[in-house]
Design a protein around this nucleic acid. Structure first.
Lengths: 257, 257
DNA sequence: CATTACACATTGACTAGTCAATGCACGGCC
DNA sequence: GGCCGTGCATTGACTAGTCAATGTGTAATG
C-alpha cells in the first residue's frame, strides 16, 4: 500500500478540488489557518504549509491580515505578429485590449532610454561582443496603474545615435518605422518564448504574487543590408503568466506562416 | 528606514546571488539546512524557509537525503511552425533535437486513443457542444525515459471514425496528412500560449519538480469546407518550462507571418 | 454626526525541538 | 574481491508555542 499522503498535502488537495469544482469561486475567502488546523486536528504550521502549496501554484493569495482568497485570472491578448500589420506597433496591444473589452481603463507607459553594454543574451543575437555599445529602450506598460509587461529593445548604438529611436517619449509612428527610415527595415523576425519563474527584480517591478510564472519573449529583428539579413534589434518582453495569452496566426499558403 | 528584510529572505537572496554569479554552479551542492541555520544564527525551520523560496523559484532541487543542488536547465527547441514545413510533423521535434545536439538519446512516445465528450476548451474552439463526441489522441513524448511533453489532439469523432487517425500507433505519414486525405487539410492555425503552474496531475505525469511552470500551447487547426474555414482539430500541448524554448519565424513578405 | 482611538482577528516570522525516511559510505564477513 | 548489513548525515513532516504587523469594525469622544 502506498504511503500515507501528508496532512498538508491532503489539506491542499481538498481546497484545490473546491476551487476547480467551483465551490470556492474567484475572490472568495478561504478558511483561516486556525480553522483548518482545528478541522484537520493538526497544528497551525501544518495548515499554513498546505495553504502555501496553493499559493505557490498560483491558485490563492494571502491578503494579510484579511485572509486567503481565491485568485482571479484575467488574461489579456498579446499578439506578437500585430507589429507586422499595423503601422503603430506600440499602440497595438492597448487597442487590442480596448477593442476586446469595453472597459476603458487607463493605459500608460513609462519609457526610459539608456546606453549600455549588451548582455550575453543580446550579444549572441546581434552578433556583437560586450565592447559594442547598445542603445536600450525600456518600457513598462501599465493599465490603471497595474503594470502588465516589461519591454526592453536593444539596438547597436551606432545605428540609432541621435535619432528619434532614442527619444524617451512615445514615438507615435513607432520605433520600427524609425528604424525603417534609417534604412533598417525589419523584414524577418525570430520569436523565442521561454517559461520560467520571475527573478525578484521582475517580481517587484511587475508586482507579481508568488506562484506567478512569466513568459520571456525575445524577438530578434533582421534587416537586409548589402543583400544579407543582419540582426538589428533584440526586444525582450517579460509577460506575467496570469495576465497574458500569446496568440499567433499561421496560414499554409506562401510557405511562410 | 525600510523595514528589516526577513532572515529567510536574506538567506535566499545570498544563495540566489551565488547561483546567478556562478559561485554555485549547476549540479553543485548547497550548504545543508543545519549549516545555514548555524551560519545565520537561526533555527533550522528558518533556513528551510529560505531554501524553499529558491525551490519555488525553480533554481534548486532537494534530493533527499543527499542535500540541495543547483538545478540544471537544458531547454530543447520546440517549433510549432515545423508541422507546416516538413511532411511528418510528429517526427520533427525529435529530428530537431537530434540535429541540434549530437547525443543520440532514445526518443519514444506513448500513444493512447479515446472517444470522449469535449472539454469546455475544446467545445469553444471547435464550435461544438458537450453532446458531440470527439476522438482524442493522447501522446506523451519522452527522451530516454524522461517525459518532456504532453500532446492531446481532439477531432469531432464523425470526421475520423474508423480511420488511421485513431490508430494508437505512430502514423509515419503524420496525422495531419491523414486529415488532409480525408478532405480536411489544415490550411490555417491559431496558436494560443498560456503560462501557468502545472496541475498536480500534469506535475506527476511529466515528473516536474516544484517551481516548474508550464506553457499550455493550444493549436486550433482550420480546414476549408464549402468555401468556409471550419475548425477541425484542437491540440493541447503541455510543455514544461525547464525543458523548452518555443520558436516562431516571421517574415514580412506576403502579408502573412 | 463625524472623527478618532482601540480591540481583535488574522497572517508573517520565528524558536526549539521530535520522529521518520533514505541514499551512501564504511566495516565486516564469506 | 565482492557482497551485505549497519550507522550516519540529511531532508521531510510535524508539534506547540511566541511576538509582530496590519486591515476592519466598534466604541468612545468631541
Amino acid at each position: 500500500m502506498a504511503r500515507q499522503r501528508a496532512i498538508y498535502q491532503r489539506i491542499a488537495d481538498e481546497l484545490r478540488a473546491d476551487i476547480t469544482a467551483g465551490t470556492l469561486r474567484e475572490d472568495m475567502r478561504l478558511p483561516t489557518e486556525a480553522e483548518l488546523a482545528q478541522r484537520w486536528k493538526t497544528s497551525r504550521a501544518t495548515a499554513v504549509q498546505g495553504l502555501k502549496v496553493l499559493v505557490n501554484e498560483g491558485l490563492i493569495v494571502a491578503d494579510r491580515p484579511r485572509g486567503y482568497f481565491v485568485r482571479k485570472r484575467r488574461p489579456m491578448v498579446y499578439r506578437p505578429q500585430a507589429e507586422f500589420r499595423i503601422p503603430e506597433p506600440d499602440a497595438d496591444i492597448f487597442r487590442q485590449r480596448i477593442a476586446d473589452e469595453q472597459d476603458s481603463r487607463e493605459p500608460s507607459q513609462k519609457i526610459e532610454v539608456a546606453i549600455s553594454s549588451p548582455s550575453k543574451t543580446v550579444q549572441r543575437r546581434l552578433h556583437i561582443d560586450a565592447k559594442t555599445a547598445v542603445a536600450v529602450r525600456r518600457r513598462m506598460r501599465s493599465i490603471d496603474g497595474d503594470p502588465f509587461n516589461l519591454n526592453d529593445s536593444h539596438v547597436p548604438l551606432s545605428l540609432v545615435e541621435g535619432t528619434d529611436w532614442m527619444s524617451p517619449e512615445d514615438v507615435p509612428r513607432g520605433t520600427n518605422r524609425v528604424l525603417a527610415e534609417l534604412g533598417y527595415e525589419i523584414i524577418h523576425s525570430v520569436d523565442e518564448i521561454m517559461v520560467r519563474m520571475p527573478t525578484p527584480e521582475e517580481s517587484s517591478r511587475l508586482a507579481l504574487g508568488p506562484g506567478t510564472p512569466v513568459a520571456e519573449h525575445i524577438v530578434t529583428g533582421y534587416a537586409r543590408r548589402d543583400g544579407r539579413e543582419t540582426p538589428v534589434q533584440v526586444t525582450v518582453n517579460i509577460l506575467p503568466g496570469d495576465r497574458h495569452v500569446i496568440i499567433y496566426d499561421r496560414v499554409r499558403e506562401g510557405e511562410s506562416a
